[in-house]
Design a protein around this nucleic acid. Structure first.
Length: 574
RNA sequence: CGGGGUGUAGCGCAGUUUGGUAGCGCAUCUGGUUUGGGACCAGAGGGUCGCGGGUUCAAAUCCUGCCACCCCGACCA
């Protein structure tokens, strides 16, 4: 491809909206442009990278016997109503109506549609297992789209669905998928970690997330340095323990705490560590107000609370000021379990019941109550674990100390069980002619997000450094002075030679100065650069690997061999 | 959705406090000189100042309603 013809609008300046390196460089390198918040156009270079990633995914899916097909992005509401997710998905779903007022949505995921596709025609155990996938545009009306391709409202995803006879088969398909994903992300050059995930809105049991590590990653994970335990912060079991205290229960006492609201202020005011306080968080649930009590030195894990309540995420939020005032009779910051309004459902983390003589809000502005004890002073629903893990907590598997890290979720695998086959009545006949539920799995790879995640791991202050496996072009022949015939001639000769060997090459034939060509090549991250300049007449060119800095002068005949070496060093054949 | 902020040329911004006919840098176009790390000179084009309403002789600037976008928080591939 001649760069003089390539539509590659690079930017010298950083658009003010971009924060993350991946977002900045995707824009600056002319790979994407924003249409509206969370919706992007992929320009030629960006789209080439996308297709590279898609093809890696395709090859690995095909390797485990998954078959590609393509579904519509538009889906009728009926199937979603059958599974109950029309409401569960909530405001995250883009909904629309046709001219007959019939309801549709733009698919955020395709469990229902795949199940519906197979259920009438897959009738015998002889047809199982079945593994199908598609690479397609997905729509989710995110609360807050951000970070360029990292969190979009329209994004490209590979979603695979597995259909098995029983749990054992499902687990086997799950393992196949796991292996395929490890291959995919390894081939993309990513430093990633597999962690236990929460199944969330998808439903089902076992799930794992593939996290591309990044200091600015959106997800937090907890992992153990001594064993293989790793989980998202929301999923991680919190082994924090409070032993039953045998100290004597003291007389409870109201204390004036003028304008002292936060745990931090309270520890200072009382000069008592935060472990001796109990936090009361007021939530608005579905048609009810909740008071959630947890130890004062810990944070609540909302996902665990959602699970306990068995409601979707969008039906739970922190109560507003007005509600807090109504149920506690006090300003925000003085909520407690004692004498709280009867309408409130009180939920208590088990650890609180082991504590003695703790301090809670007084449900009266500017007052707290000390020497409070569970059972004697208040009651509630006891829940085993509502806490968010924290660095240093005990590993639930081996007891060693947990560490925290950040990453971006680029893939996940779910064991769905029979949730969708139950809802949509998808059955097969077993050997005995008896109808059985199909066991399903659902497996996603965020293709566009993977593209961003790769840049997060592969960039420097000059731009992107693509791994060869996903680079939009493998090499660029930079003709230093396009007006000099000998340079153009040698450049074109190299371009043709490399292209004929299956190497994807750009030739920078633009009437620009050398500096412009170099900076652009670095910005768009082409792995190999061959500069043809003054020594063209001696058949000498300059060879540089992006990100490695060391320039060497070689004979033009040696170029092909050098290029092959670079491919080999990245584990690729050409 | 809550909190904070921003909308002025393709991009990055100044001008708004104190109303007076819209500016800078980069990019673009033309001509020339230059040519191994984002060149220089000369000239040119490009803006409903986010949108609507109001105040005023006069509004980018003041008032008001709306919209969009970004950042921080809670969710996901």
């Amino acid at each position: 491809m001649k760069m003089s013809k390539l539509y590659m609008p690079t930017l010298r300046e950083v658009p003010s909206e971009a924060e993350l390196p991946s977002h900045k460089y995707l824009l600056r390198a002319g790979m994407i442009r924003k249409l509206v918040s969370g919706v992007y156009s992929y320009l030629p270079l960006g789209y080439r990278v996308m297709k590279k990633i898609e093809n890696i995914v395709r090859e690995e899916m095909d390797n485990i016997g998954s078959q590609e097909l393509l579904m519509s992005a538009i889906q009728p509401s009926e199937l979603w109503k059958e599974s109950g997710r029309w409401d569960d998905f909530g405001p995250e779903m883009f909904k629309l109506k046709d001219r007959h007022e019939r309801e549709f949505c733009l698919g955020p995921t395709h469990e229902e549609i795949f199940t519906d596709l197979i259920k009438d025609e897959l009738k015998s155990y002889k047809q199982l297992p079945l593994n199908l996938y598609q690479i397609q545009t997905k729509y989710r009306d995110e609360k807050r789209p951000r970070f360029g391709l990292m969190r979009c409202r329209e994004f490209i995803m590979k979603d695979a669905y597995t259909f098995d006879m029983d749990e054992e088969g499902m687990t086997e398909s799950y393992r196949d998928m796991w292996r395929a994903y490890e291959n995919i992300f390894t081939r993309c050059g990513l430093d990633f970690r597999v962690v236990e995930g929460d199944s969330g809105a998808m439903g089902g049991s076992d799930s794992h997330e593939f996290m591309a590590m990044s200091v600015v990653g959106e997800s937090e994970i907890a992992y153990c340095g001594d064993c293989d335990y790793a989980a998202t912060d929301e999923k991680a079991i919190c082994e924090y323990k409070i032993e039953v205290s045998d100290s004597k229960e003291l007389e409870k006492e109201k204390v004036s705490t003028p304008n002292i609201k936060t745990i931090e202020e309270l520890t200072e005011f009382f000069n008592i560590p935060s472990e001796n306080f109990v936090k009361t968080l007021i939530y608005q649930g579905k048609d009810e107000v909740l008071a959630v009590l947890i130890p004062g030195n810990r944070e609540l894990n909302e996902v665990k609370l959602l699970k306990h309540l068995a409601i979707p995420e969008h039906e739970l939020e922190l109560a507003d000021e007005e509600t807090i005032k109504r149920v506690t009779g006090a300003n925000v910051g003085f909520a407690g379990p004692i004498a709280i309004s009867d309408e409130v459902r009180v939920i208590v983390d088990k650890r609180v019941t082991n504590m003695k003589n703790f301090i809670v809000g007084g449900n009266e502005t500017d007052y707290h109550i000390k020497n409070v004890n569970y059972n004697r002073d208040f009651h509630g629903e006891i829940v085993e674990d509502l806490l968010l893990v924290r660095e240093g907590d005990k590993c639930p598997k081996c007891g060693s100390s947990l560490k925290m890290d950040r990453g971006n979720e680029v893939g996940n695998i779910f064991q769905l069980g029979t949730k969708y086959s139950d809802a949509l009545n998808a059955t097969y006949l077993d050997k005995n002619g008896k109808a059985q539920k199909i066991y399903m799995g659902s497996h996603g790879v965020g293709i566009s997000r993977t593209m961003a995640a790769i840049i997060e791991q592969y960039h420097d202050d000059k731009g992107i450094i693509w791994p060869l496996s996903v680079a939009p072009y493998h090499a660029v022949v930079t003709v230093i002075n396009a007006k000099k015939e000998d340079q153009m001639e040698l450049g074109e000769k190299l371009y043709k030679e490399l292209s004929s060997k299956g190497i994807e090459v750009l030739i920078d034939d633009r009437k620009e100065r050398a500096g412009v060509k170099f900076t652009d090549a670095e910005l768009i991250g082409i792995p190999i650069r061959i500069a043809v300049g003054r020594k063209a007449n001696e058949n000498i060119v300059e060879f540089v690997i992006r990100g490695e800095g060391e320039k060497i002068e070689i004979k033009s005949e040696e170029v092909l061999g050098k290029v092959k070496e670079v491919f080999k060093s990245q584990g690729l054949d050409i």
